[in-house]
Measured scan of single mutants.
Amino acid sequence: TFTSIVTTNPDFGGFEFYVEAGQQFDDSAYEEAYGVSVPSAVVEEMNAKAAQLKDGEWLNVSHE
């Protein structure tokens, strides 16, 4: 299960995956970082959410 939350205070020191406002979700980078295949429906969902981000916001993507 993939989830996401919007934050204005990303923790770059941890093992977190963020999408910056104005960027798209990079499923290849996510797969490389976590060894998890990302279904195309999830990629579309995360890109739709990322498109709604305002300046200074980040989308924190995770999975269980």
Results as ranks from 00 to 15, higher is better:
residue 1 T to Y: 13
residue 1 T to G: 12
residue 1 T to K: 14
residue 1 T to I: 15
residue 1 T to Q: 12
residue 1 T to W: 14
residue 1 T to C: 15
residue 1 T to E: 08
residue 2 F to W: 15
residue 2 F to Y: 08
residue 2 F to C: 04
residue 2 F to S: 00
residue 2 F to V: 03
residue 3 T to W: 14
residue 3 T to N: 09
residue 3 T to R: 10
residue 3 T to H: 13
residue 3 T to Y: 14
residue 3 T to C: 14
residue 3 T to A: 08
residue 4 S to T: 09
residue 4 S to E: 02
residue 4 S to K: 04
residue 4 S to A: 12
residue 4 S to H: 07
residue 5 I to Y: 15
residue 5 I to V: 13
residue 5 I to S: 13
residue 7 T to S: 06
residue 7 T to R: 00
residue 7 T to W: 04
residue 8 T to E: 08
residue 8 T to P: 05
residue 8 T to R: 12
residue 9 N to Y: 08
residue 9 N to H: 10
residue 9 N to R: 09
residue 10 P to E: 01
residue 10 P to S: 03
residue 11 D to A: 09
residue 11 D to Y: 11
residue 11 D to S: 10
residue 11 D to W: 12
residue 11 D to T: 11
residue 11 D to F: 12
residue 12 F to D: 05
residue 12 F to I: 07
residue 12 F to P: 06
residue 12 F to T: 06
residue 12 F to M: 08
residue 12 F to S: 06
residue 12 F to V: 06
residue 13 G to Y: 12
residue 13 G to K: 10
residue 13 G to Q: 10
residue 13 G to D: 12
residue 14 G to V: 07
residue 14 G to C: 12
residue 14 G to P: 08
residue 14 G to Q: 08
residue 14 G to R: 09
residue 14 G to S: 14
residue 15 F to R: 14
residue 15 F to P: 11
residue 16 E to I: 09
residue 16 E to K: 15
residue 16 E to N: 15
residue 17 F to W: 10
residue 17 F to G: 00
residue 17 F to V: 03
residue 17 F to K: 00
residue 17 F to C: 06
residue 18 Y to W: 08
residue 18 Y to I: 05
residue 18 Y to T: 02
residue 18 Y to M: 04
residue 18 Y to L: 07
residue 19 V to I: 12
residue 19 V to F: 03
residue 19 V to A: 00
residue 19 V to K: 01
residue 19 V to P: 01
residue 20 E to V: 08
residue 20 E to A: 15
residue 20 E to S: 13
residue 20 E to F: 10
residue 20 E to I: 07
residue 20 E to M: 14
residue 21 A to K: 12
residue 21 A to D: 01
residue 21 A to S: 09
residue 21 A to E: 04
residue 21 A to F: 13
residue 22 G to I: 02
residue 22 G to Y: 06
residue 22 G to S: 04
residue 22 G to M: 06
residue 22 G to W: 05
residue 22 G to H: 07
residue 22 G to R: 06
residue 23 Q to I: 04
residue 23 Q to V: 05
residue 24 Q to L: 14
residue 24 Q to T: 12
residue 24 Q to C: 10
residue 24 Q to P: 11
residue 24 Q to G: 09
residue 25 F to Q: 01
residue 25 F to W: 04
residue 25 F to M: 07
residue 26 D to G: 04
residue 26 D to A: 05
residue 26 D to R: 06
residue 26 D to T: 05
residue 27 D to I: 15
residue 27 D to G: 15
residue 27 D to Q: 15
residue 27 D to H: 15
residue 27 D to M: 13
residue 27 D to Y: 15
residue 27 D to P: 15
residue 27 D to K: 15
residue 28 S to C: 12
residue 28 S to L: 13
residue 28 S to Y: 11
residue 28 S to W: 11
residue 29 A to P: 00
residue 29 A to C: 09
residue 30 Y to C: 03
residue 30 Y to T: 01
residue 30 Y to E: 00
residue 32 E to I: 13
residue 32 E to D: 10
residue 32 E to Y: 11
residue 32 E to G: 08
residue 33 A to M: 15
residue 33 A to K: 15
residue 33 A to R: 15
residue 34 Y to P: 00
residue 34 Y to T: 09
residue 34 Y to W: 08
residue 34 Y to I: 03
residue 35 G to F: 05
residue 36 V to T: 05
residue 36 V to W: 06
residue 36 V to Y: 08
residue 36 V to M: 09
residue 37 S to K: 15
residue 37 S to A: 12
residue 37 S to I: 13
residue 37 S to D: 06
residue 38 V to G: 02
residue 38 V to S: 02
residue 39 P to I: 03
residue 39 P to D: 03
residue 39 P to E: 03
residue 39 P to Y: 02
residue 40 S to Q: 14
residue 40 S to L: 13
residue 40 S to D: 09
residue 41 A to P: 07
residue 41 A to F: 13
residue 41 A to K: 11
residue 43 V to G: 03
residue 43 V to C: 06
residue 43 V to I: 13
residue 43 V to L: 08
residue 44 E to P: 02
residue 44 E to N: 10
residue 44 E to H: 10
residue 44 E to G: 08
residue 44 E to Q: 12
residue 44 E to I: 12
residue 45 E to C: 10
residue 45 E to Y: 10
residue 46 M to N: 02
residue 46 M to L: 15
residue 47 N to M: 06
residue 48 A to S: 09
residue 48 A to I: 12
residue 48 A to K: 12
residue 48 A to F: 12
residue 48 A to P: 00
residue 48 A to N: 10
residue 49 K to E: 06
residue 49 K to M: 11
residue 49 K to Y: 07
residue 49 K to F: 08
residue 49 K to V: 07
residue 50 A to N: 01
residue 50 A to G: 02
residue 50 A to V: 08
residue 51 A to T: 07
residue 51 A to D: 06
residue 51 A to W: 04
residue 51 A to H: 08
residue 51 A to N: 07
residue 51 A to Q: 10
residue 52 Q to T: 10
residue 52 Q to G: 09
residue 53 L to F: 00
residue 53 L to Q: 00
residue 54 K to T: 08
residue 54 K to A: 09
residue 54 K to S: 09
residue 54 K to N: 09
residue 54 K to M: 09
residue 55 D to S: 12
residue 56 G to T: 04
residue 56 G to I: 02
residue 56 G to K: 04
residue 56 G to A: 03
residue 57 E to D: 04
residue 57 E to Q: 09
residue 57 E to S: 04
residue 58 W to T: 02
residue 58 W to K: 01
residue 58 W to E: 01
residue 58 W to C: 04
residue 58 W to L: 02
residue 58 W to H: 02
residue 59 L to C: 02
residue 59 L to N: 01
residue 59 L to S: 00
residue 59 L to A: 01
residue 60 N to W: 15
residue 60 N to G: 14
residue 60 N to R: 15
residue 60 N to H: 15
residue 60 N to D: 03
residue 61 V to S: 00
residue 61 V to W: 02
residue 61 V to C: 04
residue 61 V to L: 05
residue 61 V to P: 01
residue 62 S to R: 15
residue 62 S to L: 10
residue 62 S to P: 03
residue 62 S to Y: 12
residue 62 S to Q: 10
residue 62 S to D: 03
residue 63 H to K: 01
residue 64 E to P: 09
